[in-house]
Nucleic acid binder design. Structure first.
Lengths: 253, 253
DNA sequence: AATAATTGTTTGCAAGGGCCGAACGCTCTC
DNA sequence: GAGAGCGTTCGGCCCTTGCAAACAATTATT
């Protein structure tokens, strides 16, 4: 029953985190910039940067500081912890090639969907998603496919935390509407996004489970092509087959 | 004249860093594990983890903590800051396809070489290198190609910091030997690794400069194939042509 | 050229906060 | 149901962090 709030935290660590996130936003900055932006003295910022520099989380070009490639190392490591990643890549490349559309993989973290891989078919349209991008979970098919597998309390927690902001006129913005949709997804076996995130884009998505939800895969494309039998039969069945292949691989590795 | 030592640092930030790096090593751990491993009280570890959790740098499965995908986001960001990355990928894929060997890209950070991309040709042999891996700079062709472009003081700094540890019997372990080699590289225009890092593997590498050194690219393979005219003419010229393409692209973007 | 204005760096000092240790609640095991 | 393990909470002491102001070093201005 971990309450999400009010544990005792370490303030000086928080300022270091603020520094790192500011650098993530602006690319690079000097001591004075950071001191002004984060409302600390120059001396304070300096000693924090010295700590980060000593541990190589930060590099300096002259008098400007930026994030180091150590973050890349950590990122690659975190990705490699997902054992299913390699199989997913293989299957999504196949799906994208067969369908010509965009095929994606995402997982859930802290109540958001995180895109982890994107394969482009030869007719693929570009959307804003990209590796490591975070997105609200209720308005994309990938997210709903995962939500449908979660226990009710967990869904409630996530909605409490992030709300149900509208992205288009089709976005689900009410809790009971969401609950009904999730029920439908469970019955149907896959999730659908009917222009709920981006106007003109429809998606289908299937969850990947392996002793709990590990993520979801999806196919997305323009509504004109995502219609009729293709949208209701062909693509879902391809998708479910791929999800199945991934799950079987995961089970025996 | 930034001395590398003795600036005032923030100790509590250091413990958070220790926690993060420990998690990077063991994958996941509980409060008690961390307290024992890092020699702190459980309470201390707890408040640090709470800070990390609140900022989403860490996830918890039950009572075990692990690094979150936020590191992936930061890693991707840092990679994207290297504007030349996309061109490099394209050129290395070509090089690997043409030659059948392994083609790689690395840059320098904190006196070490950091691999950033690896393309496999159809005869490629597997080496231990991989994206974000750090390696000593003096014993690989990529590293020497970069060192040869640095001012003498910078080379000295790096050697002071990391030394010249031997990896094979061919590794350069003396400063004057290194200086002579770097001079030769400057005259020749590219660097060579003759089994100095791994027995049986030879490489050629060329620096990528754009208002300073941004990295280096290399081709590596088994010594049996990396010999004669191919090693001394064909591969170096292909490599230099690719380096040139990359530099021109970098200049106009 | 000389001076002014910025920058990053250092340091003394005071107060605020981090760390420990012990106690608590919880969940599993035996 | 008692024990051992875990994560969590909390009071209080002491250390350390953070500020402000002075310093150094570079750049802009006159």
């Amino acid at each position: 029953m971990q309450g999400e709030q009010s544990s005792r935290t370490v303030q000086s660590v928080q300022t270091t985190i603020d520094i790192v996130e500011h650098l993530r936003e602006v690319g690079e900055a000097g001591v004075t910039d950071l001191a002004a932006a984060l409302d600390h003295s120059k001396g304070t910022i300096h000693s924090h940067l010295a700590t980060l520099l000593e541990n190589e989380y930060v590099v300096r070009n002259g008098d400007r500081y930026g994030l180091s490639l150590k973050f890349l190392d950590f990122g690659e490591y975190v990705k490699s912890q997902l054992e299913i990643y390699d199989v997913v890549v293989e299957e999504l490349d196949d799906l994208a090639a067969e369908t010509g559309e965009v095929a994606q993989f995402a997982t859930e973290e802290h109540g958001r969907a995180v895109y982890l891989y994107k394969a482009h078919g030869n007719q693929a349209v570009n959307t804003a998603s990209s590796v490591s991008k975070r997105e609200y979970i209720h308005c994309i098919s990938l997210g709903k496919a995962m939500l449908a597998q979660f226990p009710e309390e967990r869904v409630d927690e996530i909605v409490d935390r992030h709300g149900l902001p509208a992205k288009t006129s089709n976005t689900i913005t009410e809790r009971d509407e969401l609950a009904a949709e999730l029920q439908e997804i469970r019955e149907r076996g896959y999730a659908v996004d009917d222009e709920e995130m981006i106007e003109g884009i429809r998606c289908v998505a299937a969850p990947i489970t392996n002793d709990g939800v590990v993520g979801a895969i999806s196919i997305s494309g323009p509504s004109s092509r995502m219609a009729g039998e293709r949208f209701e039969e062909t693509l879902p069945s391809k998708l479910l087959r791929s999800a199945n292949v991934i799950e079987i691989n995961a089970k025996f590795s």
